[in-house]
Design a protein around this nucleic acid. Sequence first.
RNA 1: GGUGACGUGGCCGAGUGGCUAGGCAAGGGUCUGCAAAACCCUGUACGGCGGUUCGAAUCCGCCCGUCACCUCCA
Length: 504
Amino acid sequence: MAHPFQLFNTLTRKVENVEPLVPGQLTFYSCGPTVYSFAHIGNFRSFLTADLLVRTATALGYDVRYATNITDVGHLTEDDVTDATGEDRMARALRSREGQQFANVWDLARYYADELISDWKHLNLREPSVRPRATEHMREQILAVQELLDRGHAYETKQGVYFSVASFPGYGSLSGNLDATTLEQSVRDVVSDPEKKDARDFALWKKDDAHLMQWYSPWGWGFPGWHIECSVMAMQYLGDEIDIHAGGEDLIFPHHECERAQSEALSGKPFARYWVHTRFLQVEGKKMSKRSGNFHTVRDLLASLEKGGRGVDPLALRMTLLAGHYRKPYNFTFDTIRAHTRHRERLTEALRAVNMDPMDAAQGAGTSDPASMGSFEPLYDRALAAMSDDLNTPEALAVLFEGVKRILSASPGLSRDEQNQAAAWLHGMNRLLGVVYPEHEGAQEPSATQQDDTHIDELIEERQKARAEKDFARADAIRGELTALNIEVMDSPDGVRWKRKTTF
RNA sequence: GGUGACGUGGCCGAGUGGCUAGGCAAGGGUCUGCAAAACCCUGUACGGCGGUUCGAAUCCGCCCGUCACCUCCA
């Protein structure tokens, strides 16, 4: 391997060389969202970290097996609370105005899961090797809970089944929440099961025959605890010991701490070797929340202006999200989106300069073997080195811009050979970063509609005619009309091009 | 209260002991019927105060500020 793959491991609080269990292979589990609403940019910052991890590992030559789940069970908003205030997130979503279109929670979950995958593709995220869903692994979860009971790591009360934290000495080492008293105090003011033996114990199964999603178990009707699904699915698809486990920083505690305890109690082996956590982003300098008015879903940003969206180019959004290092606080702003929309335009210019049609660059995906990049190979190497170094995306982007500048300064005038080398480099950079051109069929420009385009093309046509007749007054008038439609026209030696102007 | 992270030019962001990324925005120029794109040029920053050192944005200490987790959240 050209570069050692290094990642910050939450467990050891150090940047470490990634040494997989089986050399050359990498098993990776990334925690997905609960699908009770549209995914927001914060969700995707974390999914993007997973995506970049997979791309980098693949580029380094690892054979990656990548699982990411969909949580389609509505867990309680407070894990321990058994009274009426501990409401299920999905049940709440169903009652909301938007949720009333769904017949039941199952429909709601299915709808948002589909939307998640649609956003996923727009943002050029790689498809996982497997995308398991919690509801489709109920039997395995019940068996796991039973196994924990049999092994003496869990106990049953009138209200549920709990994992006994005292039975697992390593509890707390991932999050640093080692102090039992602190934990006890923090859960003191919520209503909890009086039969729980230890305040830290968490639910494996909740008995509840009134819950909107319920299954039959050895303990009667109810539903599984939040953490058990990931243990079960990770172990089923990747094995008892996995190499890397990732998620948002909020998952360090309690989710990953609990997941780890359960899994290791089940298998008797270390669960994940490296834990990778993505920091929350801020939006316009503040924590993203609906109340602050800075809450953005991916679909709102990508949707066209006509449809009430912001008309952001999907890959510009992707680039904006990866412009900050995943472990550092990152302030997401519209200024930054604007800057990256510009970068996308330059990238498109570069694709043109090397004779790649930006719209179907994916089809023409020629070779991107570093050897065929010629003098661009060092630039690829630097980007790969940056990504290998704990996913240093800002550095990798800087390398990308350097290469783009190099291509544009030399063009026109690039030889056929140079064009091919530059094209191979751009393909390689796209495989690594996914910001050069879309990789999924139909993932580009969800904002554009056929109708708009026809009208615009007519105006352009008319203007061209006027220009040919040297009727520049008429040509400029049409330009004005187009400008009013937020269309910018660009004349060039090889024809007219136009684009929608950024309006945010 | 406990634990942790971060503070770089107008803005976004690398760098982590000497060689001082990259981009956006701005100003000037080339090109163009106009405009855009593109290209060329200009711009020397590291929260504060001490300390270590021949030399610190980079190491150490203190202070100030911002954020996060400990409680549903990616």
